[in-house]
Amino acid sequence: MSSSVTTEKDTNLKSQAGKKRSQWGEVWRRLKKNHMAMIGLIIMIILILLAVFANQIADYEEVAIKQNTANRLQGPSRENWLGTDNFGRDIFARIIHGGRISLMVGVVAVGIAVLIGGTLGAIAGFYGGRVDNLIMRAMDIFLAIPSILLAIAIVTALGANLFNLMLAIGISSIPGYARIVRASVLTVKDQEFIEAARAIGASDFRIITKHIIPNALAPVIVQGTLGVATAILSTAGLSFIGLGVPKPRPEWGSMLSDGRTYLWEASHITTFPGLAIVITILALNLLGDGLRDALDPRLKQ
């Protein structure tokens, strides 16, 4: 997505705005045609709604936390759609609330990574030279550490709570976005319309915001969607080994770890939260792939 620069600023702005509107419209149109992506989108919308209205669906204290040992380890039934766990808590309710946590962590972690990583990448790409070298070497060092291990290290050091979880996963994702944004900046930087913009006296800031950022938007959106999926997986993984949100808060990963001991007699404790993860990740992947195809400028047959 690129914009053209003419000397008539007004007509330029108007035509730019018109072009942008139709560009996004074109993207939406292409996305709509992709049925798998739309399925992913619908699932995500449902999940988001469930997360937002979690308390309305199943009150937190009452259903998700309060223990009811008389009712423990029951399979799916009328009152407990997905059964109860080893403390008698309703699994369906816990999954819903767990979803809220997962989505929150996913979105915030990606937000942190995009903000910090994107800024670093933009600076590196834009100013080039020593700055670029320095930043990218630092990113290379971070990338030498498998990201899950980095997240584990951070959470171990800072303690296991919701915020640190978001921070840890966010930080471990920074290098990826730095690279993406830097690559976008580099492709745009050398194009002639940037020189033209400078020639009419546009400031660095204006150039960055009006020309470079829109160009970097597409790959970041795609990577961000897929990144939320990875973040949710990482959250579950960290919770599984005990580095997630503290109990008794319901998180899908820790639910899986709880269910381990009861694999024989009450496998549903493990199966259902896992399925929840799979569905969420699946939907995000479908959506992400669809967005990638819809935003691909080369798809002009």
Binding site: A229, L233, A236, G237, F240, G253, L256, G259, R260, L263, T270, T271, G274, I277, V278, I281, L282, N285, L286
Partner: peptide
Amino acid sequence: LLGVSMPNFWLGLM
């Protein structure tokens, strides 16, 4: 797609 969407520890448990 399914393979990418499954947490590996859940798969292990299953």
